[in-house]
């Protein structure tokens, strides 16, 4: 199988509001990624973008980003999901020998409209949408299932949120103590405002290239999975889709899932209970560094979320002393983690 090198990354945000247009914001991330990879638009064979038209208020893949990602007169595929799923598809294009260099881009601007109203429209239009249910309510229902027989859950989630917020450097997340988080207003019980990742605007771009690991971190394995949309059809105590995605990624990377060890984990957690679901689904234990930059709790852009974790892992693996180490990256989208994506990244030589 071909080795896929992560040749360059770029990101704008997360910020509370990026007043640039979507194309300008995306172009900023693309320019950074191309400069990091030391290539130009002409060397990109294919583009995969991640965006959700509903969130953008327009068909961004046709109107807003085609030109700035350099996709005019080139093959462009669009994923209506998390950017890490777009990365999965970009990697598959290279492994299929269809292309050698693929640019993967994700973007969203939550400042454009009320996110809670948008995610309500992402629910089933017959049985759920008319009730007013949205992704936030779905998260509350899932958290409640976990908390029902765990009287320490809320305090533990508050402590975890406090730690992650404290580690963030984006400036988006207000530093809050555990007690302040427990006293913050209920959003969707048992979740409170201080437990919710602050939403913002941003874009991420990654250049994937067939090559060797001599030039830096490589993408060793990917996997993704979707569960049923209805929350009542799933066992909310477990992210079974993530376990399946993780197993697939491990198989691609020639790692036995039960024995796979990671130096770094970058889960996509919009809420603290999701980090516990991530650990349970992947079997990650205490020997793994988790979200040293605070993860999404430090600032979160839906759709970009999982890809921002890939960029964070890439930067960590490029730090002095981390070459040769292994990272597990995670993204999810849909209500209560309906869809899951995983990438395994190995540091270069």
């Amino acid at each position: 199988m071909r080795t896929i090198r992560i040749a360059g990354v770029g990101e704008t945000g997360p910020v509370q509001q990026d007043r640039r247009s979507i194309p300008e914001m995306v172009l900023g991330a693309v320019d950074l990624a191309l400069a990091d990879a030391q290539i130009g638009h002409g060397e990109i064979d294919s583009v995969v973008t991640a965006s959700v038209d509903l969130f953008d208020g327009l068909t961004a893949s046709n109107i807003a980003v085609t030109e700035v990602v350099g996709a005019v007169m080139k093959p462009e595929a669009r994923i209506a999901g998390d950017g890490l799923a777009a990365t999965v598809h970009g990697a598959c294009q290279i492994w299929a020998h269809a292309y050698d260099t693929v640019l993967v881009v994700a973007h969203a601007k939550t400042s454009m409209a009320a996110n809670g109203k948008l995610t309500q429209w992402a629910m089933d239009p017959i049985h759920l949408q008319p009730l007013g249910v949205n992704f936030s309510a779905a998260a509350g229902l899932q958290a409640n299932v976990l908390a029902q027989h765990d009287r320490h859950a809320e305090k533990r989630w508050a402590r975890l949120s406090c730690e992650r917020r404290a580690a963030g450097t984006s400036g988006m997340a207000k530093k809050l103590s555990q007690s302040e988080i427990l006293a913050s207003e209920i959003t969707t019980s048992p979740l409170r405002n201080g437990m919710c990742a602050p939403l913002g605007d941003g874009a991420c771009a990654v250049v994937l290239q067939a090559g060797s690991n001599a030039g830096g971190p490589v993408l060793s394995g990917v996997g993704h999975d979707l569960e049923a949309h209805g929350l009542g059809d799933r066992n909310l105590v477990h992210w079974a889709g993530l376990t399946r995605a993780f197993d697939r990624a491990c198989r691609v990377a020639n790692l036995p899932p039960a024995d796979a060890r990671f130096d770094l984990a970058e889960p996509s957690c919009f809420y603290p209970h999701e980090e516990e679901l991530f650990l349970r689904a992947t079997g990650i234990d205490g020997g793994t560094v988790i979200s040293p930059d605070g993860g999404l709790m430090a600032g979160c852009v839906p759709v970009v979320a999982g890809m921002s974790r890939l960029v964070a892992a890439f930067k960590w693996l490029r730090q002095t002393g981390n070459a040769g180490k292994r990272a597990l990256v995670h993204g999810h989208w849909g209500p209560a983690g309906q869809a899951q994506a995983v990438a395994i990244v190995d540091g270069g030589l």
Partner: peptide
């Protein structure tokens, strides 16, 4: 399961 959502009521599975 259930979740209390201010201004919307209580959603339940």
């Amino acid at each position: 399961s259930w979740t209390i959502v201010p201004d919307k009521g209580v959603f339940a599975l």
